[in-house]
Design a protein around this nucleic acid. Sequence first.
DNA 1: TTGTATGCGTTATCAA
DNA 2: TTGATAACGCATACAA
Lengths: 341, 341
Amino acid sequence: MGKTPSAPTLNDVAKAAGVSTATVSRCLNSPDRVIETTRQRVMQAVESLGYTPNFAARVMAAKRSFTIGAIIPTMDNAIFARGLQAFQDQLREDGYTLLVSSSAYSPEVEKEQIRALVARGADGLLLIGHEREEQIYQYLEKHRVPVLVAWSYAPERLQPSVGFSNKGAMRDLAHTVVDAGHRHIAMISGILQGNDRAQNRVSGVRDAMRSRGLDPAALTLIEAPYEIEKGASAFAELMSRAPRPTVVMCGNDVLAAGALREARSRGIAVPDDVSITGFDDIELAEIVSPALTTVHVPHREMGRKAAQELIAIVEGRSEGQSVCISTTLVTRQSLARPSGR
Amino acid sequence: MGKTPSAPTLNDVAKAAGVSTATVSRCLNSPDRVIETTRQRVMQAVESLGYTPNFAARVMAAKRSFTIGAIIPTMDNAIFARGLQAFQDQLREDGYTLLVSSSAYSPEVEKEQIRALVARGADGLLLIGHEREEQIYQYLEKHRVPVLVAWSYAPERLQPSVGFSNKGAMRDLAHTVVDAGHRHIAMISGILQGNDRAQNRVSGVRDAMRSRGLDPAALTLIEAPYEIEKGASAFAELMSRAPRPTVVMCGNDVLAAGALREARSRGIAVPDDVSITGFDDIELAEIVSPALTTVHVPHREMGRKAAQELIAIVEGRSEGQSVCISTTLVTRQSLARPSGR
DNA sequence: TTGTATGCGTTATCAA
DNA sequence: TTGATAACGCATACAA
């Protein structure tokens, strides 16, 4: 005897309110389809029992979860944090819940997590960059889960994207660098394998060199994971090469911060001895000293737009419109003319 | 006519392999309970159909999801990123999936997300800090979802915690500060309301003052959200007060970085004119200049331990053991003796 | 070792 | 406006 202390179900509520489960369900989902008085009775029962709908059951019955999944390469630094926060904020406004996983830049893990999110009934997915096995896209199509790609703008691809031109942005920055007089350019790029954003940033630098009459093959390139430490060690290696570059362009602000730290610890003056540039304009860029000349990416705007577009697709209001977010150059102290020698 | 291009179910696989759904289910969940030859046939069907189990259905039938939910106050900076990454890594090793939400430091949002995660069948929850409505804990108990609290160690509470002593760590740091000769101490704390970590850090400072014969009421205190900007403006305000503090202890490294930035822009030399300290020892702490004297929190260790403990609880191997992670002082350049006047 | 049958908690269709 | 009832896809107790 005594009450069962386990989670109440629709049935329990129905019994308590003296109505059918269908009515309770309607009260919760389309309150206007039920008469005021019974609704009050039902809501009271819901309240007093502390009822929460079972999501699994709801998803199974409705084939709709109001859940969006996002898989980002890493949570370990701020690169994706800001944009994702905005993405979530917008989703919330529209009544969706965001579920996030991080793949640690591993295609295997990403694949696994895509399956996990799909299996959980995600109505749509946000992925970073286009480059992944074709099979994954087929899988998503079969499961009828729409995808939106962010942090990259590539309207020619099948999957719609909300992002910016990594190549164009880096090209503009590189033009500025070359026009400042730099001839020995080095770059610390993120790992290129499987990362179209990183690849395009390198292409951007090469484009700029070419268009200014420099040999793009002369670009000294080191790949490094997006970590402070790796940026530092890559910078150390670059400084030991001859001829020593007069500018080190980094694939993002995190790498640049690492480079800056290494420069300081080696007594190399920035920008007097060597210039350093970043990408992203996360808060870090303004805090380091000297502050970074970098590419400002309006992450929040991108996140919100991505959410709006993805929801529109999920709700059948859009076929998948790609949106290009424009970036801007931010000039701070880490870039200067090369010291005349 | 023609195949249905929608997602295959257990039934489809069973048909294709010429067995019952029960057998397919067994192949997937307890492969040893089915004979080799049929298993191969089944797995082949699974493969060729591209079958993925429907999670909602599985959760409903098995009442188990191998999913752990975590709700953190923010993804907007690195405070939680590192520990959470480690948490996820450990979960993955043990076959669990992590679902993350951020509450933006709002109790309302957190409550909503707890319900969302529970409704989704999370087997266990990781929450930050103990302080929340009692009703939430009752709700979780009713739904039989175990909770582990992290980023805080409070063995006297009902819910087990894996964390560190915010008060003790800050007390140690404050002792160092006082012993360096500082008498006019100011603190930029995180918002205290609903945040036991922040509250304990303030208590730690006051404890230290008291034990060194200073009046704890003399502590100049400003609360600010954990953002660079807010740290900067709080610092600006502190510098305009008389007597001007000789040291500003910050609730975390993010606030400290903001303070540092403001100091630089005002031409206030750190640590010559004023000392600044942080908390957390995220990467930021080592990158700013001067580097921050701060409290090192072994976030990765905490994350892994939390995962292990939570899984043990979920699997019934533990009743809920609280674990205390020890922090250490990191002495860098941002703290020095006050300049004699 | 395998198959049959039932239940999990909702939503939605169809009648009343 | 409300109530029965049939899915939804899977796991599992039980039977064969």
